[in-house]
C-alpha cells in the first residue's frame, strides 16, 4: 500500500497553481487536505501523472464573514470550521455537520473545498452545500465561474469543474433570523461515512415555515436536495403530519445504493428517520430563535 510514482508540484500562489493545472493535462490531480486522495494513492486506485499540492497557497484558506454570506476558502481546514464562532453563528448547519466528519486528526488536514470538490456522496460538507445552495467559486486561467450547488454536484465523485478549474472558495448564505438548522446522521461507527445524513434548515415567521431547506448525504450518487419535501413544509406549522409527510417525501426521493454496510431499502428507512430527527431539531431551534 504505497503510492505509485507521480510528479509533484507545490505552487505558492493561486495563479501559479492555475497555470500548472492548465498545463498538466487531464491526469493531474489537486492535493488539498489529502484525507481522501492519499488513501486512494496508497491503494493505487488514484494514479495521477502530476500532483499539484495547493497546501502552500495561503490565499485559499480563511473564513470571511461578509454579512449576508460567509466565504470559506477552499483550503480552510475542517478543524477550523469546528472551532470557528463565526461559522457557528452564521452557518450553524455547516458547524454541526463538521463534527460528523471522521475524527479530529482527519479534520486537522481535511478541507471544506477538498470535501466538496471530491463530491463523495456520503460526505457531510457537500450535503450542507446542497441544502444551503452554497455558491462554488471556481477559477481557471480562463477566469472565474460561480456555480450554485444545485448545478455543481453531478454524480459519484463528479462535479461540474472543468479539468483546468479549481474550487477556490465556497460561499454559504447566512442563516436568516428566526431560522433553525440541524444535521442528523447515522453511521456504522463513530466517525464513519454516513449511512444516511440529513441537513435541514427551517425559517419560521409567526410559527409558519417561510423557508425550508433539506438535503442529504449517503442517499444517492450525489448530495440530494429534497424540494418536494421542502414544499410540503412551506407554510405549515411543522405539525407532526407535515413533518411525517416531508420525511416520506425524503425517503421516496432518495436514490440509495446497496453495499456491505446497508441495503438500499434500509438506507431509505434511515433517510426518513434522519429527516425526522433533523427537521424536528431544526424546527425546535427555529422556535427558539424566533
Amino acid at each position: 500500500m504505497k503510492p505509485p510514482r507521480f510528479d509533484y508540484r507545490a505552487p505558492q500562489g493561486l495563479d501559479e497553481a492555475l497555470d500548472l493545472l492548465a498545463d498538466s493535462g487531464p491526469d493531474a490531480r489537486i492535493l488539498a487536505g489529502g484525507q481522501s486522495l492519499v488513501p486512494a494513492l496508497n491503494f493505487r486506485l488514484a494514479r495521477p501523472s502530476v500532483l499539484i499540492d495547493i497546501n502552500g497557497v495561503a490565499e485559499l484558506a480563511g473564513i470571511d464573514d461578509q454579512g449576508d454570506r460567509v466565504v470559506i476558502g477552499a483550503m480552510t481546514r475542517q478543524r477550523e470550521i469546528e472551532v470557528s464562532e463565526d461559522v457557528a453563528r452564521a452557518v450553524p448547519l455547516l458547524h454541526e455537520a463538521t463534527r460528523y466528519v471522521a475524527h479530529l486528526p482527519i479534520r486537522t488536514r481535511g478541507t471544506v473545498g477538498g470535501s466538496i470538490a471530491n463530491a463523495d456522496p456520503a460526505a457531510e460538507d457537500p450535503a450542507v452545500a446542497a441544502a444551503l445552495d452554497a455558491t462554488m467559486v471556481c477559477r481557471s486561467r480562463r477566469g472565474e465561474r460561480r456555480i450554485a450547488a444545485g448545478g455543481f454536484f453531478v454524480d459519484v465523485l463528479t462535479t461540474a469543474l472543468e479539468p483546468d478549474e479549481m474550487l477556490v472558495a465556497v460561499e454559504f448564505p447566512r442563516i436568516p433570523s428566526g431560522a433553525g438548522a440541524a444535521f442528523a446522521e447515522i453511521s456504522r461507527r463513530d466517525g464513519d461515512f454516513a449511512l444516511a445524513g440529513v441537513a435541514a434548515q427551517i425559517a419560521l415567521t409567526n410559527g409558519r415555515v417561510t423557508d425550508a431547506r433539506i438535503a442529504a448525504c449517503g442517499l444517492g450518487p450525489a448530495p440530494l436536495r429534497f424540494r418536494n419535501a421542502e414544499e410540503i413544509l412551506l407554510d405549515s406549522a411543522c405539525e407532526t403530519e407535515a413533518i411525517e409527510a416531508a420525511c416520506d417525501a425524503v425517503a421516496a426521493s432518495s436514490d440509495p445504493h446497496d453495499d456491505v454496510h446497508a441495503s438500499a431499502a434500509y438506507r431509505r428507512q434511515l433517510a426518513a428517520a434522519m429527516a425526522r430527527r433533523a427537521l424536528n431539531a431544526a424546527h425546535t431551534r427555529a422556535g427558539v430563535a424566533a
Binding site: 509533484y8 492535493l31 489529502g34 484525507q35 492519499v38 488513501p39 496508497n42 499540492d53 479530529l104 486528526p105 482527519i106 486537522t108 488536514r109
Partner: peptide, 8 residues
Amino acid sequence: AARSCLML
C-alpha cells in the same frame, strides 16, 4: 494531531 500515513 494528524495521520502521518495521509501526508507526503
